[in-house]
């Protein structure tokens, strides 16, 4: 029992879960009864994409990489989706093509980082510019709509909750599949130490490659959900997403140095970021300073969560020995 509890506390997502719950409670105190149906549907629709892409990003971060092309890929998918739907293509075909485009983006990232060994952050900066450039090329100004049937389904299925939750569920289940697969173990291994993983017979380059492809797949699903929700095409729609996703992952206990973290933590982190905005709106009445307040809150959350996670890793080891998770 006690060891179960310690395991729970040591779970990298634990701190972000605490943050999430406290924000729920704080919001309830600040604006009682805010958690109604409209809030939840709206929240899932507008924050769902961030939650989903954070889980995708956590795959790359856990395997020791970095991906700042999240917004590039998502914008591209958004634009492709809308352009195809304008041409009157069948919905299922559109989705298939979107996923293929997403996979293609992931493959490019994976090739350059994995097999060509270019520093991840620089590679994905370059590819981000490539992808968002193509998106802007296809659609220089915002326009378009999604197929009527799909839109109706998204907004009405299961009382409006169904569609966003379905998308989230796909992502979360996808994450659990990865987590429980042999590949998952290898992702963690490569993230912790490439050399030792290599010595253990793991094909490090391939694992890195796969991590980017999987992440891109996750972003794609997230972009499909986002596009349906916004029901419009805009090559800059996802522009701030990368930064937020990285922050969400860090809050969720994913170490940027790799090997530590849980996609669920990233989801908690992303949800907290969304909830924090509600909190800020309730506290800071001056509309012009709300961005500033949420920025400060984000910075505090990042510092607090990282330090708490580190403290826990140091104090709650199974043997009661003080160990340092930072040192390898």
């Amino acid at each position: 029992m006690k060891s179960k509890l310690i395991n729970f506390i040591r779970w990298p997502a634990f701190v972000s879960l605490v943050l999430l719950v406290s924000l729920l409670i704080i919001n309830q105190i600040l604006s009682p009864g805010y958690l109604n149906k409209a809030y939840i549907t709206n929240f899932l629709g507008s924050n769902g994409p961030l939650i989903m892409s954070s889980i995708g990003l956590s795959i790359v971060l856990i395997s020791g990489g970095m991906d700042i092309s999240v917004d590039g890929i998502m914008s591209l998918i958004n634009v492709v989706y809308i352009t195809l739907s304008e041409s009157g293509m069948q919905t299922i075909l559109i989705l298939v093509i979107c996923i293929l485009v997403g996979l293609f983006c992931g493959i490019i990232n994976g090739l350059f980082v994995g097999y060509l060994r270019i520093t991840p952050i620089l590679t994905t900066f370059a590819t981000s510019s490539l992808f968002s450039g193509i998106a802007l090329w296809i659609m220089p100004s915002p326009r378009g709509s999604v197929p009527k049937g799909l839109l109706n389904w998204y907004y009405s299925w299961l009382g409006g909750f169904g569609a966003p939750i379905l998308f989230l569920l796909i992502i979360v289940i996808g994450w659990f599949i990865i987590r429980k697969s042999k590949l998952g173990i290898m992702l963690y291994a490569v993230g912790a130490n490439k050399e030792n993983s290599y010595l253990s017979g793991i094909n490090v380059y391939r694992v890195q490659f796969i991590s980017y492809v999987l992440a891109a797949l996750f972003y794609t699903i997230s972009a499909i959900s986002m596009t349906t929700y916004f029901s419009g095409g805009d090559a800059t729609v996802a522009s701030a997403l990368t930064m937020k996703a990285i922050t969400a992952c860090v809050i969720g206990g994913v170490l940027l140095s790799g090997g530590v973290g849980d996609g669920i933590g990233a989801a908690f982190g992303a949800t907290s970021l969304g909830l924090a905005i509600t909190t800020v709106l309730a506290i800071v009445k001056n509309a012009f300073f709300q961005d500033f307040a949420s920025g400060v809150l984000m910075l505090i959350a990042v510092i607090g969560c990282t330090l708490l996670n580190r403290y826990i890793a140091n104090k709650f080891s199974k043997k009661g020995v003080v160990i340092n998770a930072e040192k390898d």
Binding site: K182, M186, A189, G191, A192, N196, G201, G259
Partner: peptide, 24 residues
């Protein structure tokens, strides 16, 4: 070969570490 500097992954359990080679 067993490595002098240890080829273990510090974030994985003992049983996974032992089984890591040819995991797939």
């Amino acid at each position: 070969m067993t490595a002098q500097e240890l080829s273990l992954l510090r974030n994985l359990s003992v049983s996974y570490n032992i089984n890591l080679c040819f995991l797939d």
